[in-house]
Design a protein around this nucleic acid. Sequence first.
DNA 1: AAGTGGTCTAGACCACTTT
DNA 2: AAGTGGTCTAGACCACTTT
Lengths: 241, 241
Amino acid sequence: MHHAFKDRHTPLYTQVAILLRQRIKKGVWKRGEQLPVIETLMSEFAVARTTVRQALTLLEDEGLIQRSRGRGTFVTGSLDEPGWLTLDTSWTTFLRTLEGNWSKLVEVRDEVGHLDLAADLGKLAPGYRLISRIHGSDDKPYADVSIHLDRRCYKLAPERFEAEFIIPVMESLPEIKITSAKQVLTIGTADFETAERLEIPVNAPVGMLRRVLCDDSGTAIYIGDITYRGDLVRLEMNINR
Amino acid sequence: MHHAFKDRHTPLYTQVAILLRQRIKKGVWKRGEQLPVIETLMSEFAVARTTVRQALTLLEDEGLIQRSRGRGTFVTGSLDEPGWLTLDTSWTTFLRTLEGNWSKLVEVRDEVGHLDLAADLGKLAPGYRLISRIHGSDDKPYADVSIHLDRRCYKLAPERFEAEFIIPVMESLPEIKITSAKQVLTIGTADFETAERLEIPVNAPVGMLRRVLCDDSGTAIYIGDITYRGDLVRLEMNINR
DNA sequence: AAGTGGTCTAGACCACTTT
DNA sequence: AAGTGGTCTAGACCACTTT
């Protein structure tokens, strides 16, 4: 038998993962419960073992399930989040985080000065558009954001880039293809300007994240410098063995 | 032809990864250079495509290489590190980090009070041994460490656990099997005691890491609360797409 | 002994980039 | 058109846990 998935553009394992994620969200398998064994999932979806395993790997990276040899696969996470801001190491959860948050434009201008970028993160584009914003949820600001966006990308949809979240806009434009996404988190304290924007005391602890997205040529088309309120950030990691 | 790897206990793809890692370290392929294509690696090592790819995935997670469809696989990282403390999301780099660092024992005692542990991180063991230490490199302390070690593990080699780094000792004991490793990083400020131990001002920004290792039964056999000097921590992440 | 996830093979074909 | 990494299959067998 051949599988019943129709979308021929997204990989099969991604589609299987989406389906499984929905079921966990709907409570078909609750936290602590065991998922059907691989053989069962294989025959239900009519796909090969590898494909099921690739899908499960995605969910495991998101912290949603945990697999253990000889015992089975269990739901360990839930899809509704607590009061913490969770920094993401997986793209799907990252995009989901943006939902329900607001952002306020602070400044937009062409970048003139020099921009420093570690060589292993990417090559600099010829010119950037600087977009500064405050991000918040409910009535509280949580991040002070400055994004350098490759001017060639910016010109594809200037109004949208100034009004919406940058990354979803990039994803929606077929001309833009993000091939690598890296970020580096360091810890510091709030200077006067940031403190005021985030409504925290000067010198309060903050998380400083540099996020760099590159296209296929290795050019850094998006360089984001994001300062988070220290009391709201939380980063979960699975250590892969 | 059959592959030439002799160790039948570690997975083939791990052995291939070790070999490739060594070559990058020796400079056989330098930063920016292209690795041989998959087909070549397959025939050189006499393994299947899947196996090569699994090995490359390990290196990619470590930030050592970058793959891009249609173009090839390139060395993007190096194996000697800068002055930053790099928090790890991969087990092999994590173990490598310990080399060359020192640690000083502060306190060892049985834990009596209650220990809080989020349910999704693991179940509590019946009793713990508390081991407190300062870790440093050169002459500077960089982390204030408190580890709760399952007393049953501790009893297997009490002297070693008090003298050496905990995790390598655990790895060396065949009775102990770590099946999951998770950590959560939050940001805060140094209290008086920590400030003194880390030789930083009170209220200086710090990274607070809770690391939990579980055995196959889901019991948290190691609960580490580690406070890092904020100015030394740096966390790199690849966002998987 | 039975159940369950992990490893591995050989080979086909696809998506994307470079020549 | 040729080169390169990604996806997918079908099936064998292994390592580990539970019954």
